[in-house]
């Protein structure tokens, strides 16, 4: 049942969004020539997305853990507050922050991969946090207590019991953030100043600058396929580590 639903959902996405563009693009360009992205661009995109997911999870995990164990509603609302602000607004506010940082410390973040990463982490931490919170919150106390009476310190009980048991949540958070980050356009554009050039930026340029709808739609399909493959592999790895 669930498999059928998933297939239908995926097929409808492909049919509704990609095929028309593909056909339109082919017509407009009169047979068209596929302009492939460079390998370095693909690598940058993958690394950036993976790093964004990993850093977001690393930042969000302790916060989610705290909120799940003894956080108040107010703290919860405050931590997820960045979700209320639009991505573009966040990007430009970070730009201001980068300018201040540069003036005070001489550290240049605008136009660097680090700057883009920072922006993307800022953008996606709340998503990771919500996903991890849901996973940690439903963990039972008793395996931890069992570990404690068997001689585990608080830290050992966390590392050997709670962390492995929350791995499904980590996997879910990874998928969510990684997929968003793979298609990210705004942060690389604004914070990377087109110097950090990603797959998403390239597709954007193909559509809106080169008006090459054919290459643009084919490449978005390829991007979707690559993301799917990467997600599949990551989830399989994480699952084999825990449950």
């Amino acid at each position: 049942m669930i498999r059928r639903v998933a297939l239908v959902a995926f097929a409808s996405v492909v049919l509704l969004f990609y095929i028309p563009f593909l056909a339109l693009g082919y017509y407009v360009t009169g047979g068209g020539e596929l302009k492939m992205p460079s390998l370095s661009m693909v690598t940058t995109t993958f690394l950036l997305a993976a790093l964004t997911a990993v850093v977001s999870i690393a930042v969000a995990y302790p916060a989610a853990y705290y909120l799940a164990k003894r956080g108040s509603e107010l703290e919860f609302a405050l931590v997820t507050a960045p979700l209320w602000v639009g991505t573009l607004l966040k990007a430009y506010s970070l730009l201001v922050l980068f300018a201040i940082v540069k003036e005070r410390t001489g550290l240049a973040l605008w136009g660097t991969a680090a700057g883009v990463l920072l922006g993307m982490v800022y953008e996606y931490v709340p998503y990771a946090l919500l996903t991890l919170y849901a996973a940690i919150e439903k963990l039972s106390e008793s395996p931890v207590n069992a570990a404690r009476v068997l001689g585990a310190s608080r830290l050992q009980a966390f590392l050997r019991v709670e962390l492995p048991l929350s791995m499904p949540g980590v996997a879910a958070a990874f998928i969510l953030v990684f997929l968003f980050a793979m298609g990210e356009v705004i942060m690389p554009a604004v914070l990377g100043a087109w110097k950090v050039y990603t797959f998403g930026s390239y597709v954007w340029d193909l559509y809106f600058k080169a008006r090459d709808f054919f290459s643009g739609s084919v490449l978005s399909l390829i991007l979707a396929a690559l993301s799917l493959l990467a997600t599949y592999m990551v989830v399989r790895t994480i699952r084999s580590l825990s449950l």
């Binding site: 039972s140 395996p143 069992a146 009476v149 019991v161 492995p164």
Partner: peptide, 13 residues
Amino acid sequence: ISMLFQDLALFPH
């Protein structure tokens, strides 16, 4: 000490 819990609390992983 050692303890046996009502819900057993075995480690599922």
